[in-house]
Design a protein around this nucleic acid. Sequence first.
DNA 1: TGTGGGGCTTCCAACGATGGGAAGGTCAAG
DNA 2: CTTGACCTTCCCATCGTTGGAAGCCCCACA
Lengths: 162, 162
Amino acid sequence: MNIGRAAEMSGVSTKMIRYYEQTGLIPKAARQDSGYRDYDAADVHRLRFIRRARDLGFTVEQIGELLGLWSDRSRASADVKAFALEHVERLKEKMAEIEAMVRTLETLADHCHGDDRPECPIIEGLAEGDGGPSDLEPREPWRFGKPGKRSARQRHPEVCDK
Amino acid sequence: MNIGRAAEMSGVSTKMIRYYEQTGLIPKAARQDSGYRDYDAADVHRLRFIRRARDLGFTVEQIGELLGLWSDRSRASADVKAFALEHVERLKEKMAEIEAMVRTLETLADHCHGDDRPECPIIEGLAEGDGGPSDLEPREPWRFGKPGKRSARQRHPEVCDK
DNA sequence: TGTGGGGCTTCCAACGATGGGAAGGTCAAG
DNA sequence: CTTGACCTTCCCATCGTTGGAAGCCCCACA
């Protein structure tokens, strides 16, 4: 089976299939005489696994671990469960961050008349903030999984000018 | 004021300040005789504005628009409000996507004994899916704003092997 | 048998926001 | 004058994904 067909059947683009192969997430595909990559049902099965894991927000690295868990017939289901629930925690943290943004924005928007006049508490909120130390919650650029690397955000020590 | 001080006072890293200048989000900073960038209180004010907007999940591009709205004294507060609420909608969409992931994962985890035995509904769920056409919701790689560009995800037409 | 078009190959670049680091200039305190 | 902290520019890496270019392969149709 050509890569295009495998892509069609797995829901993973040809680009990504080659990328996954290149990065070692999946083994190097067999080759036809033509040099074309050759896939069988098991390969497609694995690709579908990968796509579903991606759809659940796992990083490629995590998917590598999941594939390992998948093929390890002796591993305990507890290991998988722990892995999954750890990821759920990450997802919930992200949700909470976004929710905080939404809450702040909606609060600001509630105070905004939204008419023809120029004065706007939303812009003012951005311009003035509340001056507090944490101001608005620190925000990480949102990698899906990847918990570590909580970069020490530079904190403005106190509000002084000049 | 040197860039380091401006970074400290605004909560924006020196790296990002230079980046924002380079990409045109902020005007080119004045220079001291030494060639060092020179910032005043107004610059820091703008940087704090930017940081708060980032903290609320706006992309740099959107922040550019927000800066425009900020400095446009004739614009209606309704414009700002619409802009903000549009962003809130995007955020809520993202939240819903993540929530769907969480729900799926927790459902799978609920069915997993989590003991020493190897059989695990979580892995099986990834391996088999439900076979349905939408399977698990299509997932976009999560850019913060940037609504457009909903890439036509390749759909696996039906599940056939070989 | 020739040709066209589509699929395949590899390689390179871009996105967005951020951090890391090298190589070298500047400044202030000791 | 030296030292160390700061600044400058430049390039590279991240992560997942898409896009494109240049060139080969294969099949169908005339």
